[in-house]
Amino acid sequence: MTASAPSPPPLLDTDVLRSFVAIAESGSFTRAARQVFRTPSALSMQIKRLEETLGHPLFVREARQVRLTPEGEMLLGYGRRLLKLNQEAVARFLSPALDGVVRLGTPDDIGTRILPQVLSRFASGHPAVQVEVVAGRSGDLVGRMIDEKLDLVLVTEGNDDLAPGLGEVVHSEPLVWAGREGGVAAQRSPLPLSLASHGCAWRGMALAALDQAGIDYRVAYSSEHCAGQEAAMLADLAISPFPRSLVRPPLRRLGAEHGLPPLGEYRIALLRGESLSPAAEALAARVVEAFQEWR
C-alpha cells in the first residue's frame, strides 16, 4: 500500500488574525471589538477556535485586561507581518497606479511619531511615488507651501506665526510638564525651564500658565527641536512642557504634586496645498489614518 501524503497544516484566517492583533494591541476584548466591528463574545469565540487550532493558549485573562502568553507574543509578530503582506497584495492590485513626487513638511516632534508608519504603508501601496520630507518650523513650512514648494504640511496649532484655524485638525492631546525621574529640577526656585524657541505654542502655553499661577521661573535652555529640550530634562537641569505621548522613561510627568499648573490641550493640523495631485491626496489620507490609529 502507498503511504498517504501528510495532511497540510491548517491555514490562519485573516479575519481571525485581525481580531487577535486588535486584542493584543488594545489589551481588551471590548476595545478590540469596537475596532473590528464585532461583539466581544464573537471575538472570544474566534480566539477560542484559534487557540484550539494552534494547540496553545494565547491570552491570560485578568480582571481588567488581557495579556499575551509567550505563544501569543510569538503569534503577534507573525500576525502583524501576515496582515501587512495581505494589505500590500490587495493594494497592489486594487489601488490605482500612482506616480510622481509628493512633498511633505513637518516639525521634527510631529514627524518622528508617525512618519515611519506612514512612509512604510504608503510605499507598500504606491511604490512608484517619491516622497520628499522637509523638517522645519511650522511657520516656515507654511510659507514654503504658499510658495508651492510643499504639497502637505503638518503644524502645531497656536504658534505665533500661524493664523488660527488653519487646516484639518488630525490630533489632539494634553500638554504636560515633564522632567527626569527622581530629579530635583522641579524643586528649584526659580523654576528652570527648557523651552522651544519664541513663537512656539508649547512655550506660550507654559509661560502663560506659570504667570497665571504666580510661579517664578527662568528660561535655562532653549532649542528649536524637542530633542534639545529633552536633553536638558535628561540631565535634570530643567523641566519642559511636552506632549503626553512623548514622555517616556527615564522622563516622567510632573503635575499638581510639584505645584505645577495644568497646561491644557495642544492640537496638530494638516494643511493641504492647492490643486493636489492624486498621489498627494493619497498621502494625506494615509497621514490622517495614522493619527487615528495612534490615539
Rank of each mutant, 00 (worst) to 15 (best):
V247M: 00
L54W: 07
T69C: 00
A91G: 14
G27Y: 09
S7G: 03
P243I: 03
M74R: 15
L17F: 06
A185S: 11
C200K: 08
D15M: 05
T112R: 15
R34N: 11
Q46P: 03
L162W: 12
L210S: 06
R137I: 15
F37T: 10
A135G: 04
D108Y: 13
W177D: 05
P249A: 13
F59N: 00
T112L: 13
K149V: 04
L58C: 08
L263W: 13
V133Q: 00
A3L: 15
A185G: 08
Q87T: 14
A5Q: 14
L68K: 02
R218T: 12
D140P: 01
V170D: 02
P190R: 09
P10L: 06
L141V: 01
S222P: 06
P107Y: 11
G111F: 05
H225T: 14
R103Q: 12
A232I: 15
V118E: 00
G111D: 02
W177V: 11
L104T: 08
F291E: 00
S222V: 15
P241A: 12
L246F: 10
L195Q: 09
P241N: 06
A33I: 13
P57A: 01
F29W: 09
E132V: 14
V170R: 02
E148N: 14
S44W: 14
S277L: 07
R61T: 13
V36P: 01
V16I: 15
G199V: 03
T14H: 11
G255Y: 09
R61Y: 11
I23G: 03
L260T: 10
L98V: 12
L263H: 10
A232H: 14
A285W: 06
F59E: 02
